[in-house]
Nucleic acid binder design. Structure first.
Length: 347
DNA sequence: CCTAATGATTCGAC
DNA sequence: GTCGAATCATTAGG
C-alpha cells in the first residue's frame, strides 16, 4: 500500500490517462500482484515525470534509457490495455459498419452512367442507344451523341482527378498520422490496434468527402441526362420517303398491321430510322387509324393503288408468258374488315 | 397565334 | 417483351 500511495502522488498531474490508470481497479490489482517490479514501475513513472524538467539532451538520454528498460514493454502493454478499456472503447464502437446503402447507390449509378468503371464503357453505349433512338437524321443524332459523350467525358475526368486528389491526400495524411503515432508510441502508450483504428477513422472521414464528390457527380450526370432527354424530345418528322415506306407496309398489311421483328428491322433499314422508331410509328399509326378510319380513307386508297401498281408490275414482269396478269384485287381493299392479310406478295 | 399532325413517352394489361 | 391508350412536346401549315 505504501508503494501504491507513492505512485499516486507521483502520478498526480499526469492528466486524464494517469487518473484512469490508477482509478482502474484492474490495473491496481495487476500492479500489486507484480510484487518487486512495483519498485521499478514507480521509478520509471518518476523518471517520466522528471523528463519535462530536464534539458533536451538529458531528456533524450533518459528517454533512451527508459526505452531500453526491461520493464518498459510490460508497462507499455499495461498502459495500452488500460487505455483501450477506458478511452478507445467509447470511440471504437461504430467501426466496421456495413457499406452505406447511399454510397452503394451512388456507386451503382456512376458505374451505370460510365463515369466510374472501365474507360468508355457502358455509359457511352447507353448514350449511343439513346442517341440512336433520338430519331431525325443520322447526323443530328450523332451530333447530340457526341455532345453528350463529350460532356460525360468531362464530368468523368473531373470526377477521376478529384478522386485521385482525395485518395492521394488521404494516403498522405494517413502516412503522416501513422508515422507520428509510431514515433509517439515510443513514449506514449499507443498500441498498433489504436493506430489501425485511427487510420480507419481517417479513411471514414475521407470517404465521406468522397461521397460528397460522388453525389455532386451524380447530380451533374442527372442534369446532363435530363438535358439530353429534353433534346431527345426535340423530334424531327421522318422524311417523305420513310413515311411512304411505312405507310406502304401499313396499308398493304391493314388486316394485320403488326410487323414482325425482322420486318421492323427491314423497314428501319429502308427508312434510315431505328427499330424502336418503327415500333413507335406503327403503334401511333394503328391507334390513330382505328380512332378515325374515315380520315385515313384517302391515304389508304392512295397506298392501295400504289401497291397494286407495284404488284402488277412485278407480276407482269414475273409471269409475262404465263397468263394475262390478274390485277391484285386484295391489295385494293381499303377496309380492314374486307382486306385479309396473307403473305402473297412476291418478295 | 392557333391548330392539326406527328414522333416519343408513359402506364396498365397481358 | 408487346400492345393499346392517353398524353406530352414539337413541327408544320393556315
Amino acid at each position: 500500500m505504501d508503494d501504491q500511495t507513492r505512485m499516486m502522488t507521483g502520478l498526480t498531474g499526469l492528466g486524464g490517462l494517469a487518473q484512469a490508470d490508477v482509478g482502474d481497479p484492474d490495473s491496481v490489482r495487476k500492479q500489486q500482484s507484480l510484487g518487486q517490479p512495483q519498485q521499478d514501475i514507480g521509478d520509471i513513472l518518476q523518471q517520466i515525470m522528471a523528463i519535462t524538467d530536464e534539458s533536451l539532451d538529458e531528456a533524450q538520454a533518459r528517454k533512451h534509457a527508459l526505452n531500453c528498460h526491461r520493464m518498459k514493454p510490460a508497462l507499455f502493454s499495461v498502459l495500452c490495455e488500460i487505455k483501450e478499456k477506458t478511452v478507445l472503447s467509447i470511440r471504437g464502437v461504430q467501426e466496421e459498419d456495413p457499406p452505406d446503402p447511399q454510397i452503394m447507390r451512388l456507386d451503382n449509378m456512376l458505374l451505370a452512367e460510365g463515369v466510374s468503371g472501365p474507360e468508355k464503357g457502358g455509359g457511352s453505349a447507353a448514350a449511343a442507344a439513346a442517341a440512336a433512338a433520338a430519331g431525325g437524321s443520322p447526323t443530328d443524332s450523332s451530333i447530340e451523341h457526341s455532345d453528350y459523350r463529350a460532356k460525360l467525358a468531362q464530368i468523368r475526368q473531373i470526377y477521376h482527378s478529384e478522386l485521385e486528389k482525395y485518395e492521394q491526400a488521404c494516403s498522405e495524411f494517413t502516412n503522416h498520422v501513422m508515422n507520428l503515432l509510431r514515433e509517439q508510441s515510443r513514449t506514449r502508450p499507443i498500441s498498433p490496434k489504436e493506430i489501425e483504428r485511427m487510420v480507419a477513422i481517417i479513411h471514414r472521414k475521407f470517404s465521406s468527402i468522397q461521397m460528397q464528390l460522388k453525389q455532386s457527380t451524380c447530380e451533374a450526370v442527372m442534369i446532363l441526362r435530363s438535358r439530353f432527354l429534353d433534346a431527345r424530345r426535340k423530334r424531327r418528322n421522318f422524311n417523305k420517303q420513310a413515311t411512304e415506306v411505312l405507310n406502304e407496309y401499313f396499308y398493304s398489311h391493314l388486316s394485320n398491321p403488326y410487323p414482325s421483328e425482322e420486318a421492323k428491322e427491314e423497314l428501319a433499314k429502308k427508312c434510315g430510322i431505328t427499330v424502336s422508331q418503327v415500333s413507335n410509328w406503327f403503334g401511333n399509326k394503328r391507334i390513330r387509324y382505328k380512332k378515325n378510319i374515315g380520315k385515313f380513307q384517302e391515304e389508304a386508297n392512295l397506298y392501295a393503288v400504289k401497291t397494286a401498281v407495284d404488284a402488277a408490275n412485278v407480276s407482269a414482269q414475273a409471269s409475262q408468258a404465263n397468263s394475262p396478269a390478274t390485277p391484285n384485287s386484295e391489295s385494293l381493299d381499303t377496309y380492314p374488315s374486307c382486306s385479309s392479310f396473307r403473305p402473297q406478295t412476291p418478295s
